[in-house]
Amino acid sequence: MHIIDVKNLSKSYGDVEAVKNISFSVKENVFFALLGPNGAGKSTTIEILSTLLSKDQGTVKINGHELDHDDDAIRKNLGVVFQYNTLDKELTVMENLALRAALYKMDKKTFKARIDALDKLIQFKSYADQRTKNLSGGQRRKADIAKALLHSPRILMLDEPTTGLDPKSRKGLWELILKLKEETSMTILLTTHYMEEVLDADHVIILHEGVIRAEDSAEQLRIQYAKDTLKVVPKAPLLKKLKSDKVPFRTVNQTVHIDIKDPFEGIKLVESYRQDIETFEIVKASMDDVFLNITGERLEEKA
């Protein structure tokens, strides 16, 4: 069953078309990622889906409710973590959470039970009574996620959640997101411009200039759009032999690079030319290669 169904969605800001006629569906309980550089339309898409922004065209159904017709019903089952921190700096984490609970008409008993349950998952209670302005970036992000999860939403939307965090906090937060994926039955919708973050996703959409350029699992995208590489440090006769055998290759800094379909093809080649190889490595295709082959641009340069 699809918990999110987007059909022909478009959105412009003046003359700038941010999202151009995109359609996609998200199955229940999956980890779904929108990958793209800044300006690809990811945030616009998530702002529309989270009922913040109006769409120009298209239909969106979330949890069976149609966007713009039944927004409150959609919001009840939606948790959103924005790129920016939305905790009130002058309030403690607990006060921030209590406010959220009141906005969802949560009674005290349920609130307390949810806090205990979330603490097991997120471990934020040790700093729950501190004003959020005194917390580290990582702690604030975790508190943000606790706030988004307080009302037990069925869908969690994470809009570039690791942006602006130091590497340690980023790693900690990512472990938490994976834990949420493993231990809850939520559907997680992530936007990111970090390639490594989509490797854990069940389904990836590559957005570029407001258009969906490809979608599949990260592994399938790699198989389909990029090749693994066999990198070899050659002995003298190797280049001649490869030429005479008509094996396509390129030389980079005295190493020979050969595109391969998969690691097994690489091993076969290594075995065939074993006498002429000093050493070798097989490099898996990265999502950056996928992005480059699909869009003609490197993701890291654009992000």
């Binding site: 009922t51 913040l52 919001r75 939606l78 924005f82 939305t86 906005l103 969802y104």
Partner: peptide, 13 residues
């Protein structure tokens, strides 16, 4: 200005 209000907007209110 800081978009903190967005957090209220995504609540059912």
């Amino acid at each position: 200005e800081t978009n903190a209000i967005n957090d209220f907007y995504v609540a059912p209110i």
